[in-house]
Nucleic acid binder design. Sequence first.
DNA 1: CTATAAGATGCATGTTAAATGCATCTTTAA
DNA 2: TTAAAGATGCATTTAACATGCATCTTATAG
Lengths: 146, 146
Amino acid sequence: MRITRHSDYALRTLMYLALKQGSVVTINEIAERYGISRNHLTKVVNRLHQLGYLRATRGKNGGLTLASAPGQISVGAVFRDMESSLAVVECVDEPGACVLSPSCRLQGLFNQAQAAFLAQLDAHTLADLLPPETGRQLRDLLAIER
Amino acid sequence: MRITRHSDYALRTLMYLALKQGSVVTINEIAERYGISRNHLTKVVNRLHQLGYLRATRGKNGGLTLASAPGQISVGAVFRDMESSLAVVECVDEPGACVLSPSCRLQGLFNQAQAAFLAQLDAHTLADLLPPETGRQLRDLLAIER
DNA sequence: CTATAAGATGCATGTTAAATGCATCTTTAA
DNA sequence: TTAAAGATGCATTTAACATGCATCTTATAG
C-alpha cells in the first residue's frame, strides 16, 4: 500500500514554496535541498504548473511561486491530481479482471476505505501542515533563511 | 495508490472457501475458477495457512477449508497480515529519506489517512461480504454447485 | 507398498510501473 | 547575445511484484 512519489514530491514542493512565500524559488534549489532528482522534480513541477497550483516564470531570474494562499490549497486535491491511478485494486478499473466483479462486495468495501483515506486528506490544507512553530523548524531543516 | 495482489488473492480465496463451506477445496480449483496463477496462489494460500486463516490437508483428497466462521474473519486483519508494507510514503519507514521528517506534519496526515482506510476494513468481516443473495450470485459466477 | 494427488518450498525469470537521466528546445532578462 | 531559467520527449534503470519451474513432502487409495 504505497503512493507514488509524484504526490509526495508535489506536496513537498508546495510546502517549500509556502515556507518561502514572497521569494521566487528555482527547481534546482528545491531538488538540492530535498536531495532528489532534478529531472523528476521538473516533471512534477510542470504538472503542478499546468494544474494551476503554482506560477512558473522562465528565463533569467525566473522561478516558481505559489499560485494561491496555503490555506486555499487542499492536500486531498493535490493528491487526487497527482496520483496516476486512484484504483486500489485492479478489478475496480479493469472490467473482466475478476469474475466476481458483477456482484462483488469487496470492491465496494475497498472504495469505501479509499474514500475514508481521501476524506482525511481533504480535511487539510497546506496551511495546516505549516503552523508557525513547525514552519520555523522546517525552515531550519531546509536551511531557508528569512 | 494500489495494494498488492497478495491481499486481493487472499481475500478472494477466503471468500471462495466461505462460499463452499462444508467442502474441501483445492488450490487448483480456486486458481482455475479465478483464472489466476496457480503458483502465486499457492504462496498466498501457504501464508494464509501459516497465519491460521485456513486449514490445509496434504495428500490425496486433501485441500483447504476455512479455519473459522466467516463472521470471525476480519477483512482488516487479513489485509494487514498480507500487505507486505503498510507504509504509504517512503519517509514513514526509512529514517533519513526526507530532511523534513523530524518535524513533518505530512507524515502524520498520511498516517491518519491510512488509519481511516484500515478502520473501514476493520469494520467488516468475510460474512459481511457474503450475504445470502450475494452468495448465490457469486456461486453462479464461480460455477459452484451446492 | 506403491502410485497418485495434494500442499510446501526455494530459486529463477519475467513484467511493469515508476523513477531517473540525457539531450534539446523555449523563454526571458541582464 | 549570452546565460539562466523552465519545458519536453525519449531512453534507460530500478525495484517491486508477479509468475514459472523444479522438486520435496505428505497422505490416501487401492
